[in-house]
Design a protein around this nucleic acid. Structure first.
Lengths: 177, 177
DNA sequence: GTCTATAGAGGGATAGAC
DNA sequence: GTCTATCCCTCTATAGAC
């Protein structure tokens, strides 16, 4: 019962699952549908993934890991543009996963990672405002993070580089007050 | 087979459904759970609501109606603080519903209202930027809307009036560039 | 207006052949 | 590594008594 192997078939299964879930939401997609799109049967999936949850987790994990790694490079008093830029880059690089999560955040609860995302926000707020910040400062950071994530998904047609600059400009303008 | 009646039991069913869905997500809550919390049996729900979808829709509809009514009061060249303030008020007044939607947006697809929400954003962007806006301007409006919705939910402990002012200050600072 | 009972569908997961 | 066949579970929804 190998778990989340990196065989070629496993990759095709992951790709099919990602596409379907991004469109329909996590809980609207059954293993039968995924298997059909790949061109195999349900039990075949269980050769590559220990369970449904195991499959879903393997979709999200690379994104989680990259954000964690990015945040780990910063500490208190970090430069806002660099910190938010690193977060944007991770969200944009995995924007297929980001879109999937934004469409149905319950996927995070499903793989028990909702607390991780909450942590990200709290850590960014702390790094950018210090301890015991005023409500106004917390609001500005929260709006920057929330809006940033939105833009990687709501404006899919926009070219990457200008979008990145526009988002960071707006976020930094808001934070500078 | 009455639909979405306003009897007292129907209200208790709606309240129970809202609480459960806000915590677990739409598709993690069954009619059995809702019925148990209310203290009745499943078939009793079907006396008050034509279907599962009918129940869910009756939860979201008042919020949708209020936002639509708020947006209808504005047109091209609207004052950003007033327009976003009206949107904030609707989101905050129904913040239990807003939280439910943000936790699991697939609820919108479920009741076929995702397009309505997309429309809101487009209409607000158009009213605040005019036609054929630059990417930078669209980004700022999208970030303002997204961040605004986030803050009504991410900062549940904050008192309403100061939160409202802080959010609108931040949004307007960002838009003024 | 609420109950018991049940139909009917579809889901996740496993056994065992090949 | 993939298949056929199957188990067991939970769900939505309905029928019909009270």
């Amino acid at each position: 019962m190998p778990r989340a192997r990196t065989t070629e078939t496993a990759d095709r299964i992951r790709a099919a699952a990602l596409e379907l879930i991004a469109v329909k939401g996590v809980h609207q997609v059954s293993l039968r549908e995924i298997a059909e799109r790949v061109g195999v049967t349900k039990p075949a999936l269980y050769y590559h993934f220990a369970s449904r949850d195991d499959l879903v987790r393997s979709l999200v994990q690379p994104f989680i890991d990259e954000v964690e790694a990015a945040l780990a490079r910063f500490g208190p008093g970090a430069d806002p543009r660099e910190l938010l830029g690193a977060y944007f880059d991770a969200a944009y690089r995995h924007r297929d996963v980001t879109a999937m999560i934004m469409r149905d955040p319950s996927i995070l609860a499903m793989v028990d990672l909702a607390s991780a995302v909450g942590d990200w926000r709290r850590r960014i707020v702390t790094m950018l405002t210090g301890s015991d910040p005023a409500l106004a400062d917390v609001v500005r950071v929260q709006m920057a993070i929330g809006g940033l994530g939105d833009c990687t998904v709501v404006l899919p047609g926009a070219p990457a580089a200008p979008l990145r600059e526009a988002v960071l400009d707006a976020a930094c303008d808001m934070l500078r007050r």
